[in-house]
Amino acid sequence: MTLNRIRNVAFLSTYPSRECGLATFTQDLVRALDDVDLIDSPKVIAVSDSDEYQYSDRVIMEISQYDRNSYIKAAKQINKSDIELVVIEHEYGIFGGEAGEYILDFAKNLEIPFVTTLHTVLPCPGEKEREVLRELGKRSAKVVTMAKNTKPLLKDVYEMDLSKVEVIHHGVPYRILESREKLKEKHGFSGKNVISTFGLLSPGKGLEYGIEAVAKVVKEHKDMVYLILGQTHPAIKKRSGEEYREKLIAKVNELGIGDHVIFVDKYLTKDEIIQYLRMSDIYMTPYLGKDQAVSGTLAYAVGYGRVIVSTPYRYAEEMLSEGRGLLAEFRNSDSLAEKLKYVIENPEEKKEMENKTLSLGRTMMWEDIARQYAKMFIKTVEEVRLKDSVVV
């Protein structure tokens, strides 16, 4: 049964001008889907935690994050609309209630199929976290994960039916850019070994270990510069101001490496992120938590073929397998330093790692990822329609 008509899809997620990785992900995906003929321009149901956000016309309704009734009301409104499929972008801290349980009120009241995309898969969830995700998985027509190595968890921990689980990579924006050397020259880093980390700053990023590692390597490699790119996460800023950034700056000063560590304290545009990545010799993610199932920043670094030095969180383990980067131990600056030195001192190996990473990165551009999502959406709607039309 093939229905050759345009699908109306809506994404339930945070959305710019709210500043968070999930909002950027959703904006990138819906824009890429605009160019896929089979899908009508996708709409967004934005989850708002305040009234300060200015949304584009793409946002057709808002859910108030901490208001349970808002979720029910939104589901009922969608049921009366021409939307055929909803995509729930699931991340912790985005939905109200204990362990984000208000999203279940939305799911239970929705009368059309929905797909759930998972941005974090906890291997050892609390009872409530497990219950919420298990229930969401049960009610979903499809579940998208961005790493194959989360599938056993979805089955064993969350009791999900693996026949409805799809693996689709995190997307990466495509840009044609000048060479690494030209960009270094433009930014005043000619002749430097550039290490970078980008994303919203928060204590879980483990940047203190990255700074300590740089202090160890710089003794032998004076041409090294470490760029810490991005502003403090708005939720952290609201709670504790710039305490974490100030601690990092104090550590840099204490270690006497002020000339080798540069903080770029701003919310970076995608073009800025990609330019910084393009001029980096090494991309470093010294994250502290094993459980991170996806990292948009790491996906971008893979997309642009950078050598990555990372702690072995779940997503990094998968993306850096087959010689695409180097894994260091958690909370261990000696281990990070050893991996940084290895890359700097072995240019041939570095080149080989870059090529391996780039060959995976080329499959992760948003254009390809959007096509994969579109095919899945159409198949999902058709399967549900077919099931509903079978007379028992």
Rank of each mutant, 00 (worst) to 15 (best):
G230T: 05
G230H: 03
G230I: 06
Q231F: 07
Q231S: 12
T232F: 04
H233V: 07
P234E: 13
P234N: 12
P234D: 11
A235H: 04
I236H: 06
I236T: 07
I236Q: 03
I236D: 07
K237P: 05
K238M: 12
K238F: 06
S240Q: 15
G241P: 04
G241I: 09
E242G: 03
E242V: 10
E243F: 10
E243H: 14
E243W: 10
E243A: 13
E243L: 14
Y244F: 06
Y244G: 03
Y244T: 01
R245N: 01
R245Q: 02
R245D: 01
R245I: 02
E246S: 07
E246Y: 14
L248W: 06
L248D: 02
L248K: 02
I249M: 14
A250D: 15
A250K: 06
A250E: 15
A250F: 14
K251S: 04
K251G: 06
K251N: 06
V252W: 12
V252A: 10
N253A: 07
N253R: 05
E254D: 14
L255H: 08
L255N: 02
G256M: 08
G256I: 04
G256P: 07
G256R: 12
I257Y: 03
I257N: 04
I257K: 01
G258C: 02
G258V: 01
G258K: 07
D259K: 05
D259A: 07
H260C: 09
H260V: 02
H260I: 00
V261C: 03
V261A: 02
I262S: 01
I262W: 01
I262L: 13
F263G: 12
F263D: 08
F263R: 11
V264E: 03
D265I: 10
K266Y: 05
K266N: 15
Y267I: 12
L268W: 13
L268H: 04
T269M: 03
T269R: 00
T269E: 12
T269G: 05
T269C: 04
K270G: 12
K270W: 11
D271V: 14
D271H: 13
D271K: 14
D271P: 05
D271A: 10
E272M: 09
I274W: 00
